[in-house]
Computed example of a mutant assay.
Amino acid sequence: MDIDAWVWWLIGAVGLGIPLVLTAMPEFGMFAVGALAASGTAALGVHVTGQVLVFAVVSVALIAVVRPIANRHRSQRPQFASGVDALRGRTATVLERVDAHGGRIKLAGEVWSARTLDEESVFEAGRQVDVVEIDGATAVVI
């Protein structure tokens, strides 16, 4: 039994897809797409030289185009903050008098212990304050 060339290219594409899944290296995926393109070319009856050329051109083109885009996206910081980073800059309501030694605020629907950033500031209940940072489980406010 003689196996057609397009089947070999398809097997090669699957073989290149396995390391993509195991290592999360996108280059393997680009080579797998090149092998799929070569498989299609073989199914159309193109000579082996043309198949290898299609594989090489598609693989190199994907690496040249997709890789810089992926690297650019990977190096960008996320546009959203989460956890305590999301609480910085938020406004809170003073529940119990807040001074340099402590107090209570309502921040993002939760009650937090709080203290002022400087020694002189004092905020009475009902006042709106801004969260400067989170120090452990204490919000530092101004």
Rank of each mutant, 00 (worst) to 15 (best):
M1W: 05
I3W: 13
A5F: 09
A5P: 04
W6E: 02
V7Y: 10
L10R: 04
I11V: 15
I11R: 12
V14I: 15
V14R: 08
G17D: 08
I18R: 11
I18G: 10
I18W: 07
L20C: 08
V21G: 08
L22K: 12
T23G: 07
T23L: 11
M25I: 11
M30S: 11
M30Y: 09
F31G: 07
G34R: 13
L36R: 00
A37H: 00
S39I: 03
G40Y: 00
A42Y: 02
A43E: 06
L44W: 04
V46F: 15
Q51P: 11
V52R: 12
V52P: 07
L53S: 13
V54K: 02
A56H: 08
A56N: 11
V60I: 15
A61V: 13
A64H: 03
A64C: 12
N71I: 06
N71V: 12
R74A: 14
P78H: 10
F80Q: 15
S82V: 15
G83F: 07
L87G: 02
L87P: 00
R88F: 04
R88Q: 07
G89K: 03
G89F: 03
R90C: 04
A92I: 03
A92V: 05
V94M: 01
D99N: 12
A100Y: 06
A100K: 09
H101A: 07
R104E: 02
I105M: 00
K106F: 00
K106G: 00
L107D: 01
L107E: 00
G109P: 04
G109V: 00
E110W: 04
S113Y: 09
A114H: 08
R115P: 12
R115L: 05
D118G: 09
S121H: 10
V122F: 02
F123L: 06
A125F: 01
A125M: 05
R127S: 12
R127Y: 01
Q128V: 07
V132E: 14
I134S: 10
D135T: 10
G136D: 11
V140F: 03
V141G: 01
V141C: 03
I142P: 13
